[in-house]
């Protein structure tokens, strides 16, 4: 029914160009993200680092945070491990950075 179509179809008057633009914006943003976003080695790196740390200190999966940042021409890889409460100094930070970054 014409009337129902007009009410229930999502924006029936949207031009095909508007649709094209919307689709492009989504796909282009997605593809740019995978090009420039976090590298695919990040999850594996996180897992292995955690394994190494666990050899010495019992830490939980949730106690390790890996973050990659880009500022200007620098990439900063920030790694934060919260060690369990044993010593007076309960929280120690570990940082690996490239360029002039700091976590």
């Amino acid at each position: 029914m014409g009337l129902f179509d007009n009410i229930f179809r999502p924006s029936p008057n949207k031009s095909s160009a508007a649709l094209a633009k919307e689709r492009l914006q989504i796909i282009v943003a997605h593809e740019r993200g995978s090009r420039r976003g976090s590298p695919d080695y990040l999850p594996a790196l996180k897992k292995e680092l955690l394994e190494v740390v666990r050899k010495y200190v019992p830490v939980d999966q949730s106690q390790i945070k890996v973050h990659l940042d880009r500022e200007g021409g620098y990439e900063v890889l920030e790694l934060n491990i919260t060690l369990p409460d044993e010593e007076p100094q309960s929280r120690r930070g570990l940082e690996i950075s490239r360029g002039n970054g700091q976590g």
């Binding site: 031009s15 095909s16 160009a17 508007a18 633009k21 492009l24 914006q25």
Partner: peptide
């Protein structure tokens, strides 16, 4: 065709 909404306009392409 861009005016009719059948084709991406200059502005659309520039924006993307």
């Amino acid at each position: 065709r861009a005016d009719r909404g059948d084709m991406l306009s200059v502005e659309d392409v520039l924006e993307i």
